[in-house]
Design a binder for these strands. Structure first.
Lengths: 136, 136
DNA sequence: TTAGTTGCAAAGGCTTTGCACGCGC
DNA sequence: GCGCGTGCAAAGCCTTTGCAACTAA
Protein backbone atom coordinates (compact mmCIF):
# COMPACT_ATOMS: atom_id res chain seq x y z
CA UNK A 1 0.00 0.00 0.00
CA UNK A 2 2.22 2.79 1.21
CA UNK A 3 5.83 2.30 0.18
CA UNK A 4 6.61 5.61 1.77
CA UNK A 5 5.30 4.55 5.15
CA UNK A 6 7.20 1.27 4.95
CA UNK A 7 10.46 3.05 4.31
CA UNK A 8 9.88 5.40 7.20
CA UNK A 9 8.93 2.61 9.56
CA UNK A 10 12.12 0.81 8.52
CA UNK A 11 14.14 3.76 9.71
CA UNK A 12 12.83 3.41 13.22
CA UNK A 13 10.33 6.19 12.82
CA UNK A 14 7.63 6.19 15.46
CA UNK A 15 4.39 5.55 13.60
CA UNK A 16 1.35 7.43 14.85
CA UNK A 17 -2.06 7.61 13.22
CA UNK A 18 -1.30 11.19 12.14
CA UNK A 19 1.90 10.19 10.40
CA UNK A 20 0.28 7.23 8.74
CA UNK A 21 -2.47 9.43 7.34
CA UNK A 22 -0.03 12.03 6.05
CA UNK A 23 2.04 9.33 4.32
CA UNK A 24 -1.07 7.79 2.78
CA UNK A 25 -2.36 11.11 1.51
CA UNK A 26 1.00 11.89 -0.06
CA UNK A 27 1.71 8.55 -1.66
CA UNK A 28 1.35 8.05 -5.40
CA UNK A 29 2.55 9.30 -8.76
CA UNK A 30 2.10 12.86 -9.90
CA UNK A 31 1.18 13.98 -6.40
CA UNK A 32 2.36 17.51 -5.63
CA UNK A 33 0.22 18.84 -2.80
CA UNK A 34 0.79 21.92 -0.66
CA UNK A 35 0.99 21.48 3.10
CA UNK A 36 -2.50 22.88 3.38
CA UNK A 37 -3.90 20.47 0.80
CA UNK A 38 -2.27 17.60 2.64
CA UNK A 39 -3.92 18.83 5.82
CA UNK A 40 -7.33 19.14 4.14
CA UNK A 41 -7.16 15.56 2.86
CA UNK A 42 -5.77 14.24 6.12
CA UNK A 43 -8.67 15.79 8.02
CA UNK A 44 -11.14 13.69 6.03
CA UNK A 45 -9.60 10.58 7.51
CA UNK A 46 -8.58 11.93 10.89
CA UNK A 47 -10.68 14.98 11.84
CA UNK A 48 -8.56 16.09 14.80
CA UNK A 49 -5.23 16.27 12.98
CA UNK A 50 -3.66 19.71 13.27
CA UNK A 51 -1.94 21.82 10.71
CA UNK A 52 1.19 22.01 12.90
CA UNK A 53 1.50 18.23 12.91
CA UNK A 54 1.18 18.11 9.15
CA UNK A 55 3.91 20.72 8.79
CA UNK A 56 6.15 18.90 11.27
CA UNK A 57 5.60 15.56 9.60
CA UNK A 58 6.26 16.87 6.11
CA UNK A 59 9.41 18.59 7.36
CA UNK A 60 10.69 15.35 8.84
CA UNK A 61 9.98 13.38 5.70
CA UNK A 62 11.98 15.96 3.76
CA UNK A 63 14.88 15.80 6.24
CA UNK A 64 14.93 12.04 5.94
CA UNK A 65 15.14 12.42 2.19
CA UNK A 66 11.93 10.48 1.60
CA UNK A 67 9.96 13.41 0.22
CA UNK A 68 11.05 16.34 -1.93
CA UNK A 69 10.11 19.94 -1.42
CA UNK A 70 9.31 21.78 -4.65
CA UNK A 71 8.78 25.51 -4.84
CA UNK A 72 7.81 26.27 -8.41
CA UNK A 73 5.92 29.49 -7.92
CA UNK A 74 7.14 31.33 -4.86
CA UNK A 75 3.87 30.62 -3.14
CA UNK A 76 3.21 27.57 -0.97
CA UNK A 77 5.76 24.76 -1.20
CA UNK A 78 4.60 21.47 -2.66
CA UNK A 79 5.63 18.00 -1.54
CA UNK A 80 6.69 15.27 -3.94
CA UNK A 81 6.77 11.67 -2.65
CA UNK A 82 8.87 10.33 -5.53
CA UNK A 83 12.20 11.22 -3.96
CA UNK A 84 13.78 7.98 -5.13
CA UNK A 85 12.78 8.20 -8.77
CA UNK A 86 14.85 10.78 -10.66
CA UNK A 87 12.52 13.06 -12.57
CA UNK A 88 11.94 16.66 -13.53
CA UNK A 89 8.89 18.91 -13.40
CA UNK A 90 6.71 20.40 -16.09
CA UNK A 91 4.72 23.31 -14.67
CA UNK A 92 1.70 25.00 -16.27
CA UNK A 93 2.07 28.77 -16.11
CA UNK A 94 -1.70 29.05 -16.30
CA UNK A 95 -3.09 26.82 -13.58
CA UNK A 96 0.04 25.76 -11.74
CA UNK A 97 -0.43 22.05 -12.38
CA UNK A 98 2.77 20.01 -12.05
CA UNK A 99 3.55 16.90 -14.10
CA UNK A 100 6.52 14.61 -13.48
CA UNK A 101 8.59 14.14 -16.64
CA UNK A 102 11.74 12.25 -17.57
CA UNK A 103 14.59 13.78 -19.54
CA UNK A 104 17.35 12.21 -21.58
CA UNK A 105 20.87 12.49 -20.22
CA UNK A 106 22.16 13.74 -16.91
CA UNK A 107 21.82 17.51 -16.30
CA UNK A 108 25.02 17.49 -14.26
CA UNK A 109 27.03 16.60 -17.35
CA UNK A 110 25.98 19.88 -18.97
CA UNK A 111 27.72 21.97 -16.35
CA UNK A 112 31.40 22.34 -17.40
CA UNK A 113 34.07 22.27 -14.70
CA UNK A 114 34.95 25.86 -15.55
CA UNK A 115 31.41 26.84 -14.57
CA UNK A 116 31.47 25.27 -11.11
CA UNK A 117 33.44 27.95 -9.31
CA UNK A 118 34.81 25.52 -6.76
CA UNK A 119 31.37 24.28 -5.72
CA UNK A 120 30.82 20.63 -4.89
CA UNK A 121 27.76 20.12 -7.07
CA UNK A 122 25.53 17.30 -5.93
CA UNK A 123 22.18 17.71 -7.63
CA UNK A 124 20.37 19.37 -10.50
CA UNK A 125 16.68 20.22 -10.82
CA UNK A 126 15.03 21.17 -14.09
CA UNK A 127 11.71 22.97 -14.22
CA UNK A 128 10.05 23.20 -17.61
CA UNK A 129 7.43 25.91 -17.96
CA UNK A 130 4.61 26.17 -20.44
CA UNK A 131 0.86 25.88 -20.86
CA UNK A 132 -1.12 22.71 -20.37
CA UNK A 133 -3.72 21.63 -22.98
CA UNK A 134 -6.59 23.18 -21.00
CA UNK A 135 -4.87 26.53 -20.52
CA UNK A 136 -3.47 26.85 -24.06
CA UNK B 1 24.76 53.13 -16.66
CA UNK B 2 21.55 51.25 -16.13
CA UNK B 3 20.63 49.13 -19.13
CA UNK B 4 17.63 47.92 -17.20
CA UNK B 5 16.30 51.42 -16.66
CA UNK B 6 16.87 52.28 -20.31
CA UNK B 7 14.83 49.30 -21.45
CA UNK B 8 12.01 50.17 -19.09
CA UNK B 9 12.00 53.80 -20.13
CA UNK B 10 11.85 52.65 -23.75
CA UNK B 11 8.65 50.83 -22.98
CA UNK B 12 6.92 54.01 -21.94
CA UNK B 13 7.34 53.27 -18.27
CA UNK B 14 6.81 56.31 -16.10
CA UNK B 15 10.15 56.97 -14.44
CA UNK B 16 10.05 58.14 -10.85
CA UNK B 17 12.97 58.52 -8.48
CA UNK B 18 11.84 55.38 -6.64
CA UNK B 19 11.83 53.28 -9.80
CA UNK B 20 15.19 54.62 -10.88
CA UNK B 21 16.72 53.70 -7.55
CA UNK B 22 15.27 50.19 -7.61
CA UNK B 23 16.58 49.63 -11.13
CA UNK B 24 20.02 50.92 -10.17
CA UNK B 25 20.22 48.75 -7.07
CA UNK B 26 19.25 45.70 -9.07
CA UNK B 27 21.46 46.20 -12.08
CA UNK B 28 24.62 44.15 -12.54
CA UNK B 29 25.91 40.62 -12.88
CA UNK B 30 25.48 38.00 -10.22
CA UNK B 31 22.92 40.13 -8.40
CA UNK B 32 20.22 38.07 -6.69
CA UNK B 33 18.72 40.19 -3.95
CA UNK B 34 15.54 39.57 -1.97
CA UNK B 35 12.87 42.28 -2.03
CA UNK B 36 13.92 43.29 1.45
CA UNK B 37 17.57 43.59 0.48
CA UNK B 38 16.59 45.72 -2.49
CA UNK B 39 14.60 47.92 -0.12
CA UNK B 40 17.51 48.20 2.31
CA UNK B 41 19.88 49.33 -0.44
CA UNK B 42 17.32 51.63 -1.99
CA UNK B 43 16.80 53.36 1.34
CA UNK B 44 20.47 54.38 1.43
CA UNK B 45 19.89 56.46 -1.69
CA UNK B 46 16.30 57.48 -1.11
CA UNK B 47 15.42 57.34 2.61
CA UNK B 48 11.65 57.71 2.18
CA UNK B 49 11.13 54.83 -0.24
CA UNK B 50 8.62 52.32 1.10
CA UNK B 51 8.68 48.58 1.06
CA UNK B 52 5.35 48.51 -0.78
CA UNK B 53 6.78 50.52 -3.63
CA UNK B 54 9.77 48.22 -3.88
CA UNK B 55 7.46 45.21 -4.03
CA UNK B 56 5.23 46.88 -6.61
CA UNK B 57 8.17 47.92 -8.74
CA UNK B 58 9.82 44.52 -8.66
CA UNK B 59 6.51 42.90 -9.54
CA UNK B 60 6.11 45.15 -12.56
CA UNK B 61 9.63 44.51 -13.78
CA UNK B 62 8.89 40.81 -13.58
CA UNK B 63 5.61 41.21 -15.49
CA UNK B 64 7.42 43.14 -18.18
CA UNK B 65 9.90 40.32 -18.47
CA UNK B 66 12.85 42.54 -17.60
CA UNK B 67 13.65 40.83 -14.33
CA UNK B 68 13.39 37.18 -13.29
CA UNK B 69 11.96 35.90 -10.06
CA UNK B 70 13.95 33.03 -8.57
CA UNK B 71 12.71 31.02 -5.62
CA UNK B 72 15.46 28.58 -4.80
CA UNK B 73 14.70 27.88 -1.19
CA UNK B 74 11.04 28.39 -0.41
CA UNK B 75 11.93 31.44 1.61
CA UNK B 76 12.04 34.98 0.20
CA UNK B 77 12.05 35.27 -3.59
CA UNK B 78 15.14 36.73 -5.20
CA UNK B 79 15.28 39.00 -8.22
CA UNK B 80 17.64 38.48 -11.15
CA UNK B 81 18.20 41.38 -13.59
CA UNK B 82 19.77 39.22 -16.32
CA UNK B 83 16.48 38.25 -17.89
CA UNK B 84 17.88 38.59 -21.39
CA UNK B 85 20.99 36.50 -20.92
CA UNK B 86 20.18 32.79 -20.82
CA UNK B 87 21.83 31.26 -17.78
CA UNK B 88 21.25 28.80 -14.97
CA UNK B 89 21.76 28.97 -11.23
CA UNK B 90 24.20 27.28 -8.91
CA UNK B 91 22.94 27.46 -5.33
CA UNK B 92 24.93 26.77 -2.17
CA UNK B 93 22.96 24.54 0.18
CA UNK B 94 24.93 25.95 3.07
CA UNK B 95 24.69 29.72 2.82
CA UNK B 96 22.17 30.17 0.02
CA UNK B 97 24.52 32.10 -2.27
CA UNK B 98 23.51 32.05 -5.93
CA UNK B 99 25.96 32.08 -8.84
CA UNK B 100 24.98 32.48 -12.49
CA UNK B 101 26.38 29.67 -14.62
CA UNK B 102 26.25 28.71 -18.28
CA UNK B 103 25.50 25.21 -19.49
CA UNK B 104 26.25 23.50 -22.76
CA UNK B 105 23.29 22.70 -24.98
CA UNK B 106 19.64 23.67 -24.70
CA UNK B 107 17.73 22.06 -21.79
CA UNK B 108 14.56 22.03 -23.90
CA UNK B 109 16.14 19.53 -26.28
CA UNK B 110 16.37 17.01 -23.46
CA UNK B 111 12.61 16.81 -23.00
CA UNK B 112 11.29 14.25 -25.53
CA UNK B 113 7.97 14.96 -27.27
CA UNK B 114 6.48 11.92 -25.55
CA UNK B 115 7.18 13.58 -22.20
CA UNK B 116 5.39 16.84 -22.97
CA UNK B 117 1.83 15.67 -22.38
CA UNK B 118 0.36 18.20 -24.77
CA UNK B 119 1.99 21.14 -23.00
CA UNK B 120 3.34 24.07 -25.00
CA UNK B 121 6.74 24.22 -23.34
CA UNK B 122 8.39 27.61 -23.52
CA UNK B 123 11.18 27.69 -20.99
CA UNK B 124 13.45 25.56 -18.85
CA UNK B 125 15.24 26.49 -15.65
CA UNK B 126 18.04 24.44 -14.15
CA UNK B 127 19.08 24.80 -10.54
CA UNK B 128 22.32 23.11 -9.55
CA UNK B 129 22.75 22.49 -5.83
CA UNK B 130 25.91 21.94 -3.88
CA UNK B 131 28.31 23.52 -1.43
CA UNK B 132 30.42 26.58 -2.14
CA UNK B 133 34.15 26.60 -1.28
CA UNK B 134 33.54 28.37 2.05
CA UNK B 135 30.79 25.98 3.17
CA UNK B 136 32.48 22.76 2.02
C1' DT C 1 7.74 4.12 31.74
C1' DT C 2 9.36 7.77 29.10
C1' DA C 3 11.03 10.02 25.24
C1' DG C 4 8.98 11.42 21.32
C1' DT C 5 4.53 13.39 19.31
C1' DT C 6 0.41 16.13 19.19
C1' DG C 7 -2.82 20.13 19.39
C1' DC C 8 -3.64 24.67 20.32
C1' DA C 9 -2.88 29.26 19.88
C1' DA C 10 0.19 32.79 19.25
C1' DA C 11 3.96 34.70 16.83
C1' DG C 12 6.79 35.29 12.82
C1' DG C 13 8.47 36.17 7.95
C1' DC C 14 7.25 37.64 3.53
C1' DT C 15 4.00 39.89 0.55
C1' DT C 16 -0.25 42.27 -0.87
C1' DT C 17 -3.90 45.69 -0.45
C1' DG C 18 -6.88 50.04 0.43
C1' DC C 19 -6.89 54.56 0.38
C1' DA C 20 -5.50 59.45 0.46
C1' DC C 21 -1.80 62.28 -1.05
C1' DG C 22 1.74 63.46 -4.50
C1' DC C 23 4.07 63.87 -8.82
C1' DG C 24 5.56 62.62 -13.94
C1' DC C 25 3.94 63.52 -18.22
C1' DG D 1 -4.71 68.64 -14.90
C1' DC D 2 -5.07 63.81 -15.29
C1' DG D 3 -3.91 59.54 -14.02
C1' DC D 4 -0.59 56.72 -12.44
C1' DG D 5 2.61 56.05 -8.54
C1' DT D 6 3.64 56.36 -3.61
C1' DG D 7 3.49 55.80 1.42
C1' DC D 8 1.40 54.15 5.36
C1' DA D 9 -0.64 50.85 7.97
C1' DA D 10 -3.35 46.97 8.17
C1' DA D 11 -4.40 42.56 6.59
C1' DG D 12 -3.14 38.15 4.38
C1' DC D 13 -0.92 33.85 3.45
C1' DC D 14 2.22 30.36 4.70
C1' DT D 15 4.95 28.49 8.28
C1' DT D 16 7.15 27.91 12.81
C1' DT D 17 7.21 27.71 17.80
C1' DG D 18 6.17 27.14 23.02
C1' DC D 19 4.14 24.38 26.01
C1' DA D 20 1.04 21.14 28.39
C1' DA D 21 -1.33 16.80 27.51
C1' DC D 22 -0.82 12.42 25.35
C1' DT D 23 0.83 7.86 23.54
C1' DA D 24 3.78 4.34 20.85
C1' DA D 25 7.17 1.27 21.93
Amino acid sequence: MSDLLERLRGRGWRVTSQRRVVAEVLDGDHVHLTADEVHARAVRRLPEISRATVYNTLGEMVSLGEVLEVSTDGRAKRYDPNAHRPHQHLVCSGCGTIRDVHTTGDPLSHLPAAERYGFTVSAAEITYRGLCPSCA
